[in-house]
C-alpha cells in the first residue's frame, strides 16, 4: 500500500503556534522557579521525622535541591512533608495546616505510616493521609532512607515541571471538605483503609 502524504503550504506561523510557544516559555520559567526553590513545611511527627532531620543535616543536605529554607509556618510553605504517623487526633491539625498553605501547594507523604497507616492498623491511626489531604508523592519505607526522600523530592520536581499554568487542573483550586466534613466519599475512605498484607492477620488468640 502506498502512503500519500498530503502537504500544505502555510503562510507564516499560525497565531496558535506562537501562543503555545509563549505559554511553554512562561511555564518553563514559572515551573523551574517553583520546583527549584520549594520551601518545605516539615510536618514531622514520629520516627520518619528523625530521618527527615537527617536529610536536612550535613550529610544529605536537601538544601542542594532548593529546599534551603524550612518554613515552619504553613503560610510561607510550598510543600507539606508529612513525615511520620498520623493519629486521628492529629487529623484536624494537618488538615488545617494544609488549608493554611497558599497555592500552589504540594504534599509529600513520607513513610509507610503516612501513606497507608503502616504497621499501625488500629483504632488510633489514620490509614493514609490521602483520606484527609491530597498527596502528590508517596515515599515508601519505614522509615525511608534520606536518599528515598530526596528521590521523592526529585519526583516532585518532575511533576511540577510538567504542570502548566494554562490548563485548568482542578488541584490548583482549593479543595475544601465537603458538607459531610470529608475529603473523599465515605465508601472510598473505607476502601482505602481496608487491612492488607500482614495486618489482615491480627488476632488476639495465638
Amino acid at each position: 500500500m502506498k502512503h500519500v502524504i498530503e502537504t500544505k503550504t502555510v503562510s507564516g506561523q499560525s497565531p496558535n503556534y506562537l501562543l503555545a510557544k509563549f505559554q511553554d516559555l512562561v511555564d518553563w520559567a514559572v515551573n523551574s522557579s517553583r520546583a527549584n526553590s520549594l520551601w518545605p513545611m516539615p510536618f514531622g511527627t514520629a520516627c520518619c521525622a528523625i530521618e527527615f532531620m537527617a536529610t536536612a543535616a550535613s550529610r544529605y543536605d536537601f538544601a542542594r535541591f532548593g529546599m534551603e529554607r524550612q518554613a515552619f509556618s504553613p503560610r510561607q510553605a510550598d510543600v507539606l512533608i508529612c513525615a511520620g504517623r498520623l493519629p486521628f487526633k492529629l487529623a484536624p491539625v494537618i488538615r488545617r495546616i494544609y488549608d493554611q498553605m497558599p497555592q500552589p501547594k504540594w504534599v509529600i507523604s513520607m513513610g509507610a505510616c503516612a501513606s497507608t497507616g503502616g504497621i499501625f492498623d488500629n483504632y488510633a491511626m489514620v490509614q493514609g493521609i490521602d483520606t484527609i489531604v491530597p498527596v502528590d508523592v508517596y515515599v515508601p519505607g519505614c522509615p525511608p532512607r534520606p536518599e528515598g526522600l530526596l528521590y521523592g523530592v526529585l519526583l516532585l520536581h518532575k511533576k511540577i515541571k510538567g504542570e502548566s499554568l494554562f490548563d485548568h487542573v482542578p488541584r490548583r483550586e482549593e479543595q475544601p471538605l465537603d458538607d459531610r466534613g470529608l475529603r473523599l466519599p465515605p465508601g472510598e475512605i473505607d476502601e482505602i483503609s481496608e487491612p492488607f498484607g500482614n495486618s489482615v492477620h491480627q488476632f488476639r488468640s495465638a
Binding site: 514520629a46 493519629p87 492529629l90 504497621i119 499501625f120 488500629n122 488510633a124
Partner: peptide
C-alpha cells in the same frame, strides 16, 4: 498529649 497516640500496647 496524645497527638501521636498509636495504640502500641493494644497492638
Amino acid at each position: 498529649l496524645g497527638y501521636l497516640h498509636s495504640g502500641f500496647e493494644k497492638l
